[in-house]
Write a protein that binds this DNA or RNA. Structure first.
Length: 488
DNA sequence: ATGTAC
C-alpha cells in the first residue's frame, strides 16, 4: 500500500517528489514533498493523502508542500506549507496552522563552557523543572487580571518586557518583534481566556521541552555565521526550548473550527475532501475574525516564551551567583512553527500577496528579506531546529534561494510512529536511566510522556537537516548536543 | 498539541 503510494510520486529530483494534479480529483496545483528517498519511505501514507487534499483548497498558489520532517496531523500534515493567494479567493484554514498556534522554539546562549556547567548540571535542571512548570494543565506564577491578560493578547512579549520579564533586545530577536499587529481580544471566547490566563510561563506537555545543550567544536559548520549568532567559544553552553500557546490556542482553534464548519459550504460554497480542512475565505468576516483571534494566540505564545526565558535567566543567575547579563544570556532568535502570515512572494514572475500557512514548518528568510532583525540582514534568519531529546538539535540559516518553499523549512525531527506505539516500546523510568548513562540528565512531568518522546520514535535529525540543505531550504550552521532536559 | 470527551 505504502509502496503503491510512493510509486504514484514523480521524482522531480533526488530531493523533490511530486503528486501531479491528476492524482486526485479537485487538486488545483501539484503537491510537493521535500525529502530523501529514505525519509519518504519512512513517511506515513496519510501524509500523501493529506498534502494532496491541501492542494484542492481555493486560492492555493504554486503547490502544496511538505517538509522533510513531515508526518500526519489534523487535516494538514505536520510539516505542511500552503500559500493562499488572497486576491484569488484564497482561504484561511485552522488545520493548516495547528491547534497549538505559534508553538515555536527559542534559543539563548551563555558565555559558560561545558566544563564550568557540568558540576552544576543536576541542580540547574532540577531548579528549571521547579521554576518552569511542565505537564498537562500546568499553571504559572503570573497572576493576571482579565484586563492585564487582554493586554498580553494585544502586546505579546512587549507586555512582558514592560513588566520586567526580559530585556529590550529580546524583542528585536523575536519574529514580529514579539508582538504581531492586528490581534483582537474581542475575537476570542471567554473560555479561551479562562484557559489561558494562568498559563503564561509554562512549558506544557507532548513534545514541549527545555534543554541545556553544548556546542562541540567539531559541530560548527559555518564559523562566521555561528559567530554572528553568538556561538563563539569552544564547548559553549546554550539553552533551547519548545512550547506554544497552551490551552488558549487550543480553544481558539476549537472555537473557529466550529464556526468554519457551519458557514463553509452553506455560505461560501467551499467543498473539501476532509472535514479537518475546514476553511473560510480569507476576505470573509469569519476568516478575518479567526485571523485576528489567531494573532492573539501568536502573542500569547511569544509572551509565554518570554516569561520562560526570564525564569531561565533567574535560575542560571541563582546557580552561578552572577547576573544573567554577566553570564551573556543573549537570545539568538525565536521562531514560530504554527502560523499563517501575510507575506509577499514571487509566483509565476509576479509579486503576490499570500497568506502563508506553516504548520510544523519554520520560516527561513534569506538575507535581505523584510522583517529580519538588522543584525541578521546579511546572514539570513536563524532557524532553530529541535531534534529529539536523545539526539541533538541544530541552528541553521535561511538561504537566498529559499523562495521555492516561500522561505520555509523543517521544524524538527518528525515522528516515525504513534505515541501509543512508543508507549508500548519504551518505559519512561528505564529511558531516564539510559539517558543519564548516555550523558543527558532528564526530569519529566510524566513517565508515559517521556516514553512517547524516545529518540527512537523520531526520524534522525541529521537526515532531516541534510535533506533541508540538499533541497536548498536552509543551511547548517551549528549542531547542539543535549546534556540536560526538562520534559513536559 | 489539549482541563487527552461537552
Amino acid at each position: 500500500m505504502k509502496v503503491a503510494v510512493v510509486h504514484a510520486l514523480t521524482k522531480v529530483s533526488d530531493i523533490v517528489w511530486e503528486l501531479p494534479p491528476s492524482y486526485k480529483e479537485g487538486m488545483r496545483v501539484p503537491a510537493r514533498i521535500f525529502a530523501t528517498e529514505r525519509l519518504i519511505r519512512e513517511m506515513d501514507e496519510a501524509v500523501f493523502e493529506q498534502i494532496s487534499n491541501v492542494a484542492t483548497l481555493p486560492g492555493i498558489a504554486r503547490c502544496a508542500m511538505c517538509m522533510p520532517d513531515g508526518h500526519s496531523g489534523y487535516g494538514f500534515p505536520i510539516g505542511g506549507v500552503a500559500a493562499m493567494d488572497i486576491a484569488r479567493g484564497g482561504v484561511i484554514s485552522p488545520g493548516g496552522i495547528g491547534f497549538d498556534i505559534n508553538c515555536g522554539m527559542r534559543l539563548v546562549v551563555t558565555n559558560l563552557t561545558w566544563e564550568e556547567v557540568q558540576p552544576h548540571l543536576k541542580r540547574l535542571v532540577d531548579l528549571l523543572y521547579l521554576r518552569v512548570p511542565a505537564g498537562v494543565g500546568s499553571t504559572g506564577f503570573l497572576r493576571l487580571s482579565r484586563p492585564e491578560f487582554r493586554a498580553v493578547l494585544e502586546e505579546g512579549a512587549h507586555w512582558c518586557v514592560r513588566h520586567g520579564y526580559g530585556w529590550h533586545e529580546d524583542l528585536e530577536l523575536t519574529e514580529e518583534n514579539g508582538r504581531i499587529e492586528g490581534a483582537d481580544p474581542d475575537a476570542v471566547s471567554e473560555r479561551a481566556i479562562d484557559r489561558g490566563i494562568k498559563q503564561i510561563g509554562t512549558l506544557g506537555s507532548g513534545n514541549h521541552y527545555l534543554e541545556i545543550q553544548v556546542v562541540r567544536p567539531e559541530h560548527i559548520y559555518d564559523r562566521k555565521v555561528a559567530e554572528k549568532f553568538g556561538i563563539t567559544i569552544p564547548n559553549q553552553v546554550v539553552v533551547m526550548f519548545h512550547c506554544g500557546s497552551r490551552g488558549f490556542g487550543h480553544q481558539v482553534t476549537s472555537d473557529y473550527l466550529q464556526v468554519f464548519l457551519r458557514v463553509m459550504e452553506s455560505k461560501y460554497g467551499i467543498r473539501i475532501l476532509d472535514r479537518e480542512l475546514a476553511s473560510a475565505p480569507f476576505d470573509s468576516p469569519e476568516g478575518q475574525r479567526y485571523f485576528a483571534a489567531m494573532k492573539t494566540a501568536l502573542n500569547v505564545s511569544f509572551a509565554n516564551r518570554q516569561v520562560i526565558l526570564h525564569r531561565i535567566r533567574e535560575v542560571f543567575s541563582e546557580v552561578f551567583g552572577r547576573s544573567a547579563e554577566d553570564l551573556g544570556m543573549h537570545m539568538v532568535y525565536d521562531v514560530a512553527h504554527n502560523t499563517a502570515k501575510l507575506e509577499r512572494h514571487l509566483v509565476d514572475g509576479q509579486q503576490r500577496q499570500l497568506l502563508v500557512h506553516r504548520k510544523g514548518s519554520t520560516r527561513a528568510f534569506g538575507p535581505g528579506l523584510p522583517g529580519l532583525p538588522e543584525r541578521y540582514r546579511d546572514t539570513g534568519q536563524p532557524v532553530i531546529i529541535g531534534g529529539s531529546m536523545e539526539t541533538g538539535s541544530y541552528l541553521l540559516v535561511g538561504v537566498p534561494g529559499g523562495g521555492e518553499s516561500f522561505f520555509s523549512t523543517a521544524h524538527g525531527s518528525g515522528r516515525t510512529m504513534s505515541r501509543a506505539r512508543a508507549r508500548r516500546l519504551w518505559r519512561g523510568q528505564t529511558l531516564q536511566q539510559e539517558m543519564e548513562t548516555h550523558g543527558v540528565y532528564v526530569r519529566t512531568a510524566s513517565w508515559s510522556g517521556l516514553a512517547e518522546e524516545a529518540g527512537g520514535a523520531y526520524k534522525k535529525i541529521d537526515d532531516v537537516v541534510e535533506a533541508t540543505e540538499l533541497a536548498g531550504l536552509s543551511r547548517r550552521v551549528v549542531r547542539f548536543t543535549p546534556v540536560g532536559n526538562v520534559k513536559g
